[in-house]
Each structure stands twice: as structure tokens, then as C-alpha cells.
Design a protein around this nucleic acid. Sequence first.
DNA 1: TTGTGTGAAAGCTTTCACAGCA
DNA 2: TGCTGTGAAAGCTTTCACACAA
Lengths: 210, 210
Amino acid sequence: MGIPKPAAERLARLMQLLEQRKDRESPVSSAELEYITGWPSHTIRKDISFLAAGNDISTPAGYNPARLAQAINGALGFARATHNCCVVGLGRMGSAFLEYGGFHDSLFTLCAGFDSNVNRVEILRADIPLYPAFKMKEIIPRLDITYALLAVPPDQARQTALRLAECGIRGIVNFTPVMLSVPPGVEVEQVSVLDALGALAARLAVGDKT
Amino acid sequence: MGIPKPAAERLARLMQLLEQRKDRESPVSSAELEYITGWPSHTIRKDISFLAAGNDISTPAGYNPARLAQAINGALGFARATHNCCVVGLGRMGSAFLEYGGFHDSLFTLCAGFDSNVNRVEILRADIPLYPAFKMKEIIPRLDITYALLAVPPDQARQTALRLAECGIRGIVNFTPVMLSVPPGVEVEQVSVLDALGALAARLAVGDKT
DNA sequence: TTGTGTGAAAGCTTTCACAGCA
DNA sequence: TGCTGTGAAAGCTTTCACACAA
């Protein structure tokens, strides 16, 4: 019954690609997806086969993008129109998200920012409301925010993550180089540059041929 | 002979943790590393066992941090003191790296920035030299830069990545939401927020218990 | 003929359990 | 006793090869 986690992650990415794609009508073949993603077509077909079919996703010329996206949506429980996110920590990194356009036509909406520095909160201009950090406990449930982008200074990372968990955050994208430990039920995705560089170096060293 | 790729990535991260760790003398046990990283101790021991031993890494009380770091270094070919990196695209995101402290005492050094906007290059203050983009072909080999942090606007991502590959870049950390296809021999690590959020959502949906 | 769908095989990684060492 | 080290088993994922459908 379960979709393997790697497959689920690929499907999630596939869906984002489908959303970006202008043409929502003409069918997309697994070969084309292979070209775009770099993943072999049989892997893609297999991944798609994990979605309990039912819907007629495929046509003789390939997959129907709209129905495919919908099926992934369903299977991964991306049921709601969008998931609400907040940025925590509005330094260079954090405030960069305030003007990041990528959230448009994605599954995620950035709908609040927090910083412990009240000054900064007042000075920054943004299209979304910014709050002092002590209001997290009030705002996060109120706005139904499930995900947090954590961009605070390293020494505040751990405690902030715990506070976020207490506020009901389910997933944290961790931009700090600090490794977080969070209560069960909360997921963390590490996106430190250093980790990324380390992973690259490791792959180059081991001689991967992805 | 080969170290499994997941193991290599964990080892790379382990090493970063070891570098951060103040105490470079007292031994560190696999149990302690489990606590810090969240990875089970047997996985850690196994990973370490992939490093062709030779060096006496371990003591009866645990691993010698310095020697362990050194062994990982050797096995992953992080032979050189540091790897040189550059930022490409100095918008909000890109310029955030100019003042990011995390590179200190890491394996990576940020040693140049590029932007196609000459104005921006001249106005920004930074501790590292900034260049207009057309100088990449000259500067990258000269400074022996192997890695690039790609933070240009989405519509320039693809072509910039190809240019970087031509300049001899071996690894690209891709901060744009665009999926890159690069020549063989070049590795890409995706760090778009959206991907991270997608992966989180996928994991939460599938019910992972990491 | 072109493309999907999928059981079964192959290939990796992780886990286990216990030997070995100080 | 406390910890590492490691073959062997278990568990996943990916790959393959071919059936099937339009």
C-alpha cells in the first residue's frame, strides 16, 4: 500500500514540474519526463504505477498532465489547495523569501514572517504580514500554518525549532547549519549550503554517475 | 571498494559535525553520534567501517575525532584543505551568502561572486571579490573554483549552469526552482525551497517515521 | 508502432547479532 | 563492561523484459 519514500519525493517534484508546464493539455510521455528530470523513464513509470490507478491517467501518447497531477495530489494527500508556510528569522536569507516569486502557482503559500528583532519586523516591507517572534504561538494556529522556513542565526536554531513544534508546525525547512532534533511527528528537511556542498563533494569523490 | 552513496553523504555530514565540535580530543562514541545526528548507531558504525580502516580510528571509549575526520577526508578525497566556491547571481538570495558565516572552519571557501548586472557588482560590499558575469571563464579557472552556488533568476538558470560547466565547475548547488540538465561529470544538488517543502509534504503524507 | 503497466530479478542499504578487543 | 567491527539476513528500490492497449 505504501509508496516508497524516494518514489514519493520524485512524484512530488514531478508534480511541481507539471504545474510549471504551460501546456496542460498535450500528453506527456515518460520519455519526455526522463529528458526533463534525468530520471530513467522506467523509474518514472514505476513511480506513477504506485498511484492506485483508477483514473485514466494515461493515453496512448503519454500521460495527461492534469490528471496525472491530480492523481499525485490525491495519493500524496496534497489534498488542500495550498499549504501555508512562514519564514522565521528575517536576516538576509530569511528576507530573501519575502520577494521570492517561486511560490506563485505552487502548492505552498508564504503567509507570515517572524523575527525576534521587533525593529526589523517594523522596517521591512513585504506583501505578507510580519510579526515579532513572541506572537508565533498565536499566529501560527490562527493562520493555519503547517510549514516553517527556519533562517535564524545558528545559535537560536535549536530552541526556535522546538518552539515551532509546540506551535503546531509539522514540517521545518532548516536553512541553518545546525542539526535539529524535533519531537516525533515533525519532519525536518535540511537545506544548509554546506550540506549541499558536502553531498556534492561526497558524490564526486565516490564517483557517482547520476 | 565503493562506499555507498548514502553512506558517503552521511560521512560528509559527520565530518562537518566533527569540525564544529569544540573538543577535538575526547573520544566520541557511535551512541553519542546517534544522539547528535538521529541516525542509528549501527548505521554510523557501518558507515565508518567502509573507510578502509588502517588508521586506528577507534579507542575502547569511542572514536578519536581528529583521526576519524582525517579518515573520512581521505576516503572521500576531501584531500585539499578547502574547496573553492563562487556565488553566481547576487540578488537577495545570492548576496545573503556574502555575509554567511558558516563557511568558516568548513571545507569550503567562498572566494568569488558573479552577477550579470555590472552595477550590482560595483555597489555591493563584500569580503570577497565580485565580478561581472562575463569574467567567469577567466576567473573560475584562475581561482581554482570547483563549486558554484547558483542563485540567478529562474529564466537564466539553465544557460548559466551550462556556462558554469564550460568554465570547469564540477558541482552546482542549485537554488533556483528550475531543474538543470548538465553535462556528465558535473553534479547538481537541488536546494530549492519548494523542493524541500515538497519533500516534507511527501514524507508527511506517506507517513514516514524518521 | 509507440507508449504504458507490472511481476519478477537484481542490486543496494540497512539492520541484526554476535565476535573481538582493551 | 563498554564499545567497535563485520559477515549475513532482511528490507527496499530500481531495473528489466515483456504483456498489453490504442
